[in-house]
Design a binder for these strands. Sequence first.
RNA 1: GGUCCCGUGGUCAAGUGGUUAAGACACCGCCCUUUCACGGCGGUAUCAUGGGUUCGAAUCCCGUCGGGAUCACCA
Length: 553
Amino acid sequence: MDYIKLANLLYPDAKDASYWEEKYKQRNLKEGAEVVRIAPSPTGYLHIGNFFGAMVDYEIAKTTGGVFYLRLEDTDKKREIDGADFVAVNSLNTFGIAPIEGSTPSGVEVGNYGPYRQSNRLEIYKSYAKKLVSEGKAFPCFCEKAGDVNEVYERREKELQNQETISEKDVCRNLSYDEICQKLKQGKKFALRLKSNGKEGDKVFGYDLCRGKMEFPANCKDIVLMKDNGIPPYAFAHVVDDYLMKTTIVVRGSDWLSTWPQHLEIYNALGLKPLNYVHTPLICKLGENGNKRKISKRYDPEADMRYYLEMGIPTVAVCEYVLNLANSNFEIWRAKNPDLDFREFEFNPKKIGVSSPLFDMNKLLDISKNIISKMTALEVYNNVLNWAEQFDNDFAIYLKNNKEFATKVFNIDRESKKPRKDLEMFSQAKQVFSYAFSNFLKDMNLDDYEIEKENFEKVKEVLTNYKQVVNCLDDKETWFNKIKEQASKLGYAVDNKEYKENPQNFKGNTATFCEFVRVAITGRKNSPDLYTIISILGQEETINRLEKLEKLL
RNA sequence: GGUCCCGUGGUCAAGUGGUUAAGACACCGCCCUUUCACGGCGGUAUCAUGGGUUCGAAUCCCGUCGGGAUCACCA
């Protein structure tokens, strides 16, 4: 068989591969600088697993002084979602770890190694496909392709039941030149397949930065390099792209581990040295059967990065959580450096774990509430407003019209060394500060107050007395003295030790007295400093709230 | 079923032949406290399992079990 003749038949107008080699020069980077990429598909959202990879990319590029670029892998026309091209890059942008090269939100591409969208690189793939054909390493296949995904699953199920091996050489690999000509003349479309050299028992090695040298059985399948629509699947496209874009480390999820031998054979066929890879652990959740499983968009809202925005979790918190998953010594560093930006952490790709972690919302929210507790009241205001503008318009309008008041509320117990940590996410603001942001006097019914029935009488007595002396203009000491005075008068212990020794002698202690007042003012037993709340509410509102509950009882 | 990966407390994990097996989150208890918090202190581990190597194993070797990923002209 004259392979060059075949190559010209199949790809008459393809440029020679050397054209591209010439065009894309080596990057001018200092020694040790790594070139990494994120390669999302336009599926309409950014998956947390991809985000994890992007974080690793970002950190590697940062710590080595390298390049982090984005390449859009839009070769699957069936899965593509309209307008989704920039979802991933936009997400990375809002989370603060955007790539510096490749596709950008504006649609303009930055960098000298483009196009950065695979559908615009078909000419390039064609060159390398032609090269492989001309060397007898690839052949056209005219077989009918499988149908949709479900059909593939069904077929696979059957094969597994019958314990068939799936690694047969393709029937078209021995077609003669004339046979190929004939089929082309009939107008038949062809897919290009790799003529696999793999034999049963062959071994192949890959180098993973975290896992070290790994051994696999060599690929034996004549995998597809070009689909019959002229577009390459991932396996071929990424090898060509990463080579021409001068990538040095491929970061991807460990769900790619088992197809690695295929990729290694493609490198080999192309005469290229395989790149270093990092296979990141898969973020998991507990399924209904109690087993771990890969987190997925279909069942888990947390898989979609937009979820965290909707919840109003600070983007930095999400970054820190994911970073901690990638390098678990991050939180030790964080404890030592509470005020540094997470980007100053020294990341080590070798420390990326190999076992798949369970997603832990508790942990994320802990990080989140600590971050929020360190913000100024104005920062909290701006963040809550920003959240509300997207997800709660009424609340946004309210916040805009009451900026001064809202900021004061957010400032309660904030400017101390030990600020409260009530807010885990901005979406909780309305509920956490309900005593300030709801129409309290109108909305509250007796059932809404946190009081036990047996205390009704005592509460009423406290309110009746306290409303006569409360003055929201008092300084804190005077205010508290009045509390103690009233408490003492009504039979509440002012001295806590005394109360503990003989609780039966008192109706309660100052704390109990305060609790009753607090419930009237806020509806809850749990709220920040009462004095501050009363000062913010003002005299009239304070009295009204005391009287309202008094009347209800 | 084949292949590959993984197995330290509820979760994330440090730990690579000798440790009282770190730390964080969650949970529980106590202390501080005008409530709520914040903070402080404390609590819970036969390191999946069986065998082997060794004076000594979470750590090395083998088996078993368990879990995961993957097996498309999807990425």
